[in-house]
Deep mutational scan, measured.
Amino acid sequence: SEFSSRSGYGEYVQQTLQPGMRVRMLDDYEEISAGDEGEFRQSNNGIPPVQVFWQSTGRTYWVHWHMLEILGP
């Protein structure tokens, strides 16, 4: 990996993601499973900070930056 740390990767995702971009989950996290795909909606200063609309659940759920792989527009 070109990223030395999880936080470095998270910063990359945070700087790159734009609303509407497709993402894939890298880790299991509460209701969301690794491999689930969705659409980035928004972020804020909460914890976790990233709101994604997940195809698997049909609704939005908040996750962490480093848990997401960017699939593209």
Rank of each mutant, 00 (worst) to 15 (best):
S1G: 13
S1F: 12
E2T: 08
E2G: 12
E2R: 10
E2H: 10
F3L: 12
F3A: 07
S4N: 15
S5V: 11
S5E: 14
S5A: 11
R6A: 14
R6C: 15
S7Y: 13
G8S: 11
G8D: 11
G10W: 03
G10K: 09
G10T: 11
V13H: 08
Q14A: 12
Q14D: 08
Q14Y: 05
Q14W: 02
Q15Y: 11
Q15W: 04
Q15E: 04
T16K: 13
Q18I: 12
Q18V: 10
Q18K: 13
Q18E: 13
Q18G: 07
Q18H: 10
P19W: 03
P19S: 10
P19D: 07
G20S: 07
G20D: 02
M21C: 06
R22P: 02
R22E: 00
R22T: 08
R22N: 03
V23G: 04
R24K: 03
R24G: 15
M25E: 07
M25D: 03
L26E: 02
L26Q: 02
L26D: 10
L26H: 00
D27T: 10
D27C: 10
D28V: 00
D28T: 14
D28F: 05
D28H: 05
E31N: 07
E31C: 11
E31S: 05
I32N: 06
A34F: 02
A34H: 01
A34S: 09
G35T: 00
D36R: 02
D36G: 01
E39I: 11
E39F: 10
E39Y: 04
E39H: 04
F40N: 07
F40E: 10
R41H: 03
R41P: 01
Q42P: 08
Q42W: 04
S43Q: 09
N45M: 08
N45A: 13
G46P: 01
G46T: 15
G46C: 15
G46H: 12
I47R: 10
P48M: 10
P48Q: 05
V50P: 00
Q51K: 12
V52F: 03
V52S: 02
V52I: 13
W54T: 01
W54Y: 03
Q55H: 15
Q55L: 12
S56L: 02
S56Q: 07
S56G: 10
T57R: 08
T57W: 01
R59Y: 06
R59L: 01
T60K: 03
T60S: 13
T60C: 10
T60Y: 09
T60R: 02
T60V: 11
T60P: 12
T60E: 14
Y61W: 07
Y61F: 09
Y61K: 15
W62M: 11
W62A: 15
W65R: 06
W65V: 03
H66K: 04
H66G: 05
H66N: 07
H66W: 08
H66M: 03
M67K: 04
L68P: 02
E69G: 05
I70G: 05
I70Q: 01
I70T: 00
L71E: 06
L71N: 03
L71V: 13
G72K: 13
P73Y: 10
P73R: 12
P73F: 04
P73E: 09
P73W: 09
P73S: 06
